[in-house]
């Protein structure tokens, strides 16, 4: 294990260090996905790459938007948009837990000076037909990571399964730097998290809670949904496509449309525009899209093979 650095890492150093660590352990570094997602898991680099038998080692930071968690920048612990560092290893190496612990050492956590526990925490995304078993990793009582062995995705059993490590970067940075407010985290020398992101939190909280136009959101949702469904219906006939058409068929585009629907749903929810009765129905509609895309993606891979 490498020696711990003496000065706590800045937010950006934390990201560099984790990226460097996983790159050194064979991961391909990917850029954040550029469509709004609620969690790193929803990026196609996780959600779609876990399907099929092709090995994957990939790591990326993913800004994750959860409109309902916005607090106008007034709550020191909650954000409308936080950053997850996502590591996907398929199949998971036998020493995946040890690797993870080494990554903590790399970012300056001397394990002999702390209390670390793996506490049962199973993960589930019903809209994606996805679930896994695993732990929340507790460091001196703080949940710093969600560690999951993905078992199903898009309602399909995974084989091989994949290991997913999700670091909560703001949490970890706050811990390393010992600050009580996320906004006081040093992002880079001379710049705080607040300098970089407070305005965004203020304005997007206001947008999500107060300004977003409900009829427009519903309309967007319907448009994205209709286009996604149209693509999924064409995806029913992969076997009739020639190799080039099959290869170019935009399942990935359909997935972006499904993600847009999910984001519209989250905004409507934050806006208080979805009654509990409607909620179940709308979630079922989005599930149809997301699970439909996963199945189409798997079918495309099979047909192309």
């Amino acid at each position: 294990m490498t020696a711990a650095p003496s000065k706590p890492l800045t937010f950006q150093q934390l990201l560099f260090t984790l990226q460097r660590f996983w790159a050194d352990h064979g991961c391909v570094l990917q850029q954040p996905y550029d469509v709004e997602v609620g969690a790193g898991t929803m990026s196609p680099d996780t959600f779609l790459r876990v399907l099929g038998s092709k090995p994957v080692s990939i790591a990326y930071a993913q800004p994750s938007r959860r409109p309902a968690d916005g607090r106008y920048g007034e709550n020191p612990n909650r954000l409308y948009r936080h950053t997850q560092m996502q590591v996907i290893l398929k199949p998971p190496p036998v020493n995946i837990q040890e690797l993870y612990l080494e990554s903590l050492v790399a970012i300056g956590i001397d394990l002999t000076q702390h209390d670390i526990k793996f506490e049962e925490d199973n993960w589930e995304w019903p809209v994606g037909g996805a679930w896994g078993v695993g732990w929340q990793v507790m460091l001196d009582g703080l949940e710093i990571t969600q560690f999951t062995y993905f078992q199903q995705c898009g309602g399909m059993d995974l084989d091989p399964i994949c290991g997913e490590i999700t670091y909560g970067l703001e949490r970890i940075a706050g811990f390393l730097q010992d600050v009580d407010s996320i906004y006081d985290i040093v992002w880079a020398e001379g710049f705080t998290y607040g300098d970089m992101r407070l305005a965004e939190e203020e304005q997007f909280s206001a947008y999500g809670f107060d300004y977003a136009d409900v009829p427009s959101l519903w309309k967007h949702l319907e448009l994205f949904e209709a286009e996604c469904l149209a693509l999924l219906s064409q995806a029913q006939s992969f076997e009739k496509m020639d190799a080039l058409t099959l290869k170019r068929f935009p399942v990935l585009g359909a997935y972006e449309l499904a993600l847009k629907c999910s984001q519209m749903f989250n905004l409507l929810d934050a806006r208080g525009a979805i009654s509990v009765t409607e909620r179940v129905g709308v979630m079922a509609r989005i599930r149809t899209l997301v699970v439909g895309v996963a199945k189409a993606y798997a079918a495309q891979q099979t047909a192309a093979a």
Partner: peptide, 28 residues
């Protein structure tokens, strides 16, 4: 309850960390 046998300094760090998390939760 910890899953380790901390030195006095480590115990101090761990105590501090746990108190910090609790403070955030109580604040919420």
């Amino acid at each position: 309850v910890l899953n380790t046998a901390p030195t006095p300094e480590a115990a101090q760090t761990i105590r501090y960390g746990n108190a910090r998390v609790l403070r955030a939760r109580f604040n919420d």
